[in-house]
Design a binder for these strands. Structure first.
Length: 499
RNA sequence: GCCCCCAUCGUCUAGAGGCCCAGGACGCGGCCCUUUCAAGGCCAAAACCGGAGUUCGAAUCUCCGUGGGGGCACCA
């Protein structure tokens, strides 16, 4: 089989989060890569919920994950709410399957029941740490005869199933990003694969499911690198073929010193950013921007790094994934978000900013927004910028800061005088179009000896209520003559009251 | 303490022995455009962690050091 054929073999990939919290950037990127690989090869992208730790499961988390994936455009082909040929896709609904497999491991001599109590294990670990030894299961129950074990199980004694790690030799596991990883087996202990509540741990559940669901490429966080050899041993104990494994580097906080912490996450929010997908949506980020940005962290694209989903699908390759941790750079997210906003067709952008006006209690019609969007587009970094930039279009009146109405280098009375003059000029214009208003005002600027910034500045603040606004004359044409004159009149009044 | 992984501009990265006195992107600085703010265009500054090897030749290969990250649960 040549390389070309290989890359076209449909991949089955999966995103397998546990529903214990918010969907975050790391998860989003893992899902993105898995999605890209599946789509590129004409394969399937699967969502599997790893909820075997019942105590840690958070209500609503699963829904948030599904909503988040859909918002990002990472539509899964198989999953809890869409079904599929390998379901169910929630691990708690597959417990019988894990029991069967755990038994198989015991029968084949690859695993054994362990009756050690949590108390004993804690004591053991504490003693080991006191002796500066690595905390590790001492293998007490590994020595039990199958007969003894069977008797205790029959007696109803509470127990777990542990995987029997080889004591001798080394395990060589191949990570697609890093190459062969070799670890001495003596560094491992016998991990629990089935808990006393009858549910599996990750080590068993993930291996069984990846096999049963015929996953071809396992893309997961590099946090799993430590237990990677264990997983490989489990897969081999079953006699299964291994998938291609790729351990994705972790995201570091912006400083590059350590993983994102709660504290850092809070800092980011204050700054209008977040590591949580649900926040990103509310903060006005676009799926296009987020995907492009986080996809680029850990993936070495030679050039042309502004990409939409189709382009990412075409260009993605697990061969160009990078092994080193990446520090999050929110400034770059801003850049990509702004870039993708500018790439959006007007109707699309209108639809996306509308909710932000609605939420602010402003009724913005599609017609109006369609006119305004071209003025806004290149000034937006996030979608909610539209509200800040263009709220004045939809308000009955504006209330500028009186001081802002005073032109640079002039005083209030002089500014009021200018505003009055501008009013007169505009009143004289039957239709307040850009074509008529602008030349008239420029002529005034010329004859008055003032500069454009002074005159247009007063007008801008009077009409928009803001020092920074979209292009003035285009905006005025949309606002309409009546409102403009009223606002200008109000500005003259405000200016006159300043002593 | 033990184990594993990583190491190119501030950040994300290109680079798979000569194409590299190291390329792109973000950010930063400057200039142009300009009614504000942006966007856009142009220009600039900015890096191969250190030390030994291997080689005619190393950012690229090997070893050591250092630094950083991750892991060592009946959590994932």
């Amino acid at each position: 089989m040549d390389i070309y054929t290989l890359t076209l073999t449909p991949a089955r990939t999966r995103f397998a989060p546990s529903p214990t919290g918010h969907l975050h950037l790391g998860g989003a990127r893992t899902a993105l890569y898995a999605y890209l690989l599946a789509k590129q090869t004409g394969g399937k992208f699967i969502l599997r919920i790893e909820d075997t730790d019942v105590k840690r499961t958070v209500p609503g988390a699963e829904q948030e994950i599904m909503d988040g994936l859909r918002w990002l455009g990472l539509e899964y082909d198989e999953g809890p709410d869409v079904g599929g040929p390998c379901g169910p896709y929630r691990q708690t609904e597959r417990r019988d399957l894990y029991n069967v497999h755990a038994s198989r491991l015991v029968q084949s001599g690859h695993a054994y029941p362990c009756f050690c109590t949590p108390e004993r294990l804690t004591q053991m670990r504490e003693a080991q740490q006191a002796r500066k030894e690595a905390p590790r299961y001492d293998g007490l129950c590994r020595k039990l005869t199958p007969e003894d074990a069977a008797k205790r199980i029959a007696a109803g004694e509470r127990h777990v199933i542990r995987f029997k790690m080889p004591h001798e030799g080394a395990t060589v596991a191949r990570d697609h990003i890093r190459g062969d990883i070799s670890v001495e087996n003596k560094n491992f202990d016998d991990a629990v694969v089935l808990k006393s509540d009858g549910l599996p741990t990750y080590h068993l559940a993930a291996m069984v499911d990846d096999h049963e669901m015929q996953i071809t490429h396992v893309l997961r966080s590099s946090e799993w690198l430590g237990t990677f050899p264990l997983h490989v041993n489990i897969v081999r104990a079953f006699g299964w073929d291994e998938p291609i494994w790729a351990h994705l580097s972790v995201f570091l906080k912006p400083s590059g010193k350590g993983k994102m912490s709660k504290r850092e996450a809070a800092e980011a929010i204050k700054d209008g950013h977040s590591i949580f997908v649900k926040d990103l949506l509310e903060l006005g980020f676009t799926p296009e921007g987020v995907n492009n940005w986080c996809g680029l962290m850990g993936w070495g694209v030679p050039e042309d790094d502004v990409m939409n989903m189709d382009q990412m699908i075409q260009r993605f390759s697990i061969d160009s994934l990078t092994p080193s941790p990446a520090a999050i750079n929110f400034a770059k997210l801003d850049h990509f978000n702004g870039t993708h906003i500018r790439l959006l067709p007007t109707a699309d952008l209108v639809a996306r900013i509308k909710p932000f006006f609605t939420r602010a209690g402003l009724s913005a019609s599609d017609e109006m927004l369609t006119q305004i969007v071209p003025l806004l587009r290149e000034r937006m970094v996030t979608l909610d910028d539209a509200l800040e930039l263009a709220g004045f279009f939809f308000r009955e009146s504006v209330s500028p800061n009186a001081q802002d109405l005073i032109a640079k280098g002039l005083d209030a009375p002089r500014s009021a005088e200018i505003a009055r003059r501008v009013y007169q000029i505009l009143v004289g214009q039957p239709a307040l179009s850009q074509a008529s208003a602008e030349p008239a005002l420029r002529a005034y600027v010329e004859e008055s000896g003032l500069n454009v910034n002074q005159v247009f500045g007063i007008l801008r603040v009077a009409v928009t209520g803001q020092k920074i606004s979209p292009p003035l004359f285009e905006s005025m044409e949309i606002i309409g003559r009546e409102k403009i004159l009223a606002r200008l009149d109000a500005a003259v009044n405000a200016l006159s009251k300043i002593v």
